[in-house]
């Protein structure tokens, strides 16, 4: 029996958030945390709300805070997080809670949109694809794989304090994904929108983002590259 403590909050019936304990029979298996949530919802309380979709770590729906650390519930085995037979599951920190484990990601997505996350190239495209060397393409590895799960940004103190003005690790990773793309021609314009004291420079290199990223990406490193580009651009 696993003791699971869930963060519960229903805006219609709860004055304030509370923790609710469940005892879940895992049949001794090393289940994923998402499997445990499914057991709770199907057997114990159908009103528990959380997001889930692919259940294989590629869609980014089920970013949660499990025993204090952000991660994807579907690819986090119990053996990795459970301590002393207990599992505490909370919503991602720093964003408003809609209900239970579901957070309002509006601010997070707004920061993503702010970096204009699409290829900009004003030249007429060729009849076939634009050519790109394997070396140039390799520069996008570690960047394009982001699944927007928000584990990084919601573990970043700078994002907690200024989620409306600091773009945050996820948005900046995508910003650099386009700065680094040999096919993108809007580098100057992109950089000029990042010069203010908040968008990029609120990153103080805490590295929580890299430590929690379920895809093993390193936003701090990408932010470092952006800072270098901004510096050489300002000279």
């Amino acid at each position: 029996m696993l003791q699971v403590s869930l963060y519960r909050y229903s805006p219609e019936s709860d004055e304030a958030p509370r923790m609710q304990d469940f005892r879940v029979d895992t049949a001794g298996k090393d289940l994923m945390v998402l499997d445990v949530l499914e057991l709770v919802k199907s057997q114990l309380d159908s009103s528990v709300a959380y997001r889930r979709s692919c259940r294989e770590g590629v869609c980014g729906s089920d970013g949660l805070n499990m025993n204090g650390k952000n991660g994807l519930a579907c690819i986090t085995p119990l053996s990795e997080v459970v301590r002393k037979g207990k599992l505490v599951i909370r919503p991602l920190p720093g964003l408003p809670v809609i209900r239970d484990l579901v957070v309002d990601m509006t601010l997070f997505y707004a920061q993503y949109e702010k970096v204009e996350p699409y290829l900009q190239n004003d030249e007429t495209p060729p009849e076939i694809e634009r050519l790109q060397t394997p070396e140039d393409r390799e520069k996008l590895d570690g960047l394009y794989e982001c699944i927007l799960c928000a584990c990084c940004s919601t573990s970043c103190p700078s994002f907690w304090w200024n989620p409306d003005r600091f773009i945050g690790p996820a948005g900046l990773l995508q910003s650099y994904r386009f700065l680094a793309d040999s096919r993108d021609t809007a580098t100057e314009e992109r950089l000029s929108k990042l010069e203010d004291p908040f968008s990029v420079f609120r990153c103080h290199g805490i590295q929580n983002c890299a430590s929690v990223c379920p895809k093993g990406l390193n936003p701090t490193k990408a932010i470092g590259h952006i800072k270098s580009m901004l510096l050489s651009n300002s000279n």
Binding site: E195, V200, L231
Partner: peptide, 9 residues
Amino acid sequence: SRSGVSDWI
């Protein structure tokens, strides 16, 4: 300095 880059430098 009103600029993140200048502040940083």
